[in-house]
Amino acid sequence: MDYLTIDKEYSDELSIKNSKFIAFIFHCKNEEEFQNRYKSIKKQYFDATHVIPVYRIIKGENIIKEHFSDDREPAKTAGWPILYILQQKALVQIGVIVVRYFGGIKLGTSGLQKAYSEVVLNSIRNANIIPYIKLKEIKIRLPIDLEYHIHEILRNKFESFNIKIQNISYIEEKNLNYALITLSIDESKIKEFKFLLKEKISDLEIIL
């Protein structure tokens, strides 16, 4: 199955019968990133009546971790309809948080489901939806005097291979200095990437 995601954070607001709903949808790589944003929003909207957290994140070998809470709203009137939208739209690596300020008029079960769904759908319509690309972390070890050469190769392949450099460190072994480059790359491109590097630079080691 081809999954989709979004590139950054988007938000939208909706007012129904004096209740105010504020939705935030954002890209997140893991549960820790989601929890950090959730805590930030909870702190910012400390006086909100409800703060609804939902996420859908791929972990490991295409295992999808899903989570939702209704945060004291009636069961399955808030978090569940939001999660259902994410499932239907095949969205992953995505977090959704909806803040609600109660306006004094009860909306009922169907009214709540409709309100939470509508504010999230509005946010998704405003978002830049992009294909989800599974990235894999690899390390490249090579003599330090060849580091400039590999940066030239990487620079030309950043976009097509979805390369992101995570870290560069330097080590010494047997009086020789090496660069250790940690990067993430489109998993489907690794074989082609290894062939390209070996063709250009023979004296390197790729650690998967």
Rank of each mutant, 00 (worst) to 15 (best):
Y55R: 05
L176Y: 05
A23P: 05
N30W: 09
K136Q: 14
N30P: 03
V51T: 15
L176D: 08
P81S: 07
I25M: 11
Q87V: 02
D7H: 06
R125G: 01
K59W: 01
G95P: 08
I85G: 09
E159M: 06
I41V: 12
L142M: 08
E118R: 14
N175K: 14
K194W: 08
Q44W: 00
F161P: 03
I105H: 00
I82P: 02
D47A: 14
I150K: 06
Y45A: 10
R100D: 02
Y45W: 09
F158D: 00
T77G: 01
I94L: 04
I190M: 08
F26A: 01
I163W: 09
E33F: 03
L208G: 03
I138W: 11
I181T: 13
I163Y: 07
V98E: 05
D2M: 14
D203L: 11
K174I: 01
F161S: 05
L176K: 14
I64C: 07
I57K: 07
I41N: 01
Y38P: 00
K189S: 12
P81W: 02
R72V: 02
K139L: 10
F26E: 03
T109F: 01
K157Y: 15
L142W: 09
I130H: 02
H50V: 12
L142R: 00
D203M: 01
R155F: 09
I206A: 03
I41F: 07
L86Y: 10
E205T: 15
S202C: 04
N30E: 06
K29E: 12
I41T: 04
S202K: 15
K8E: 10
K139M: 07
T182N: 13
I150S: 08
I138F: 09
E137M: 05
R125P: 00
K76I: 09
Q35K: 13
L112I: 03
N156S: 15
I105K: 12
A78W: 06
L83M: 14
N36A: 04
N177W: 11
F26S: 11
S15Y: 07
H151K: 13
K8A: 05
R141T: 07
F193V: 04
N175I: 06
V51P: 00
I140R: 04
D186N: 15
I165M: 12
I130G: 04
I16R: 04
E33I: 03
Y148P: 01
L204I: 15
D70Q: 13
N162H: 15
P74S: 11
N177M: 11
I163D: 10
P74N: 12
I85R: 02
E172C: 00
G60S: 06
L183M: 15
F21R: 05
I16W: 06
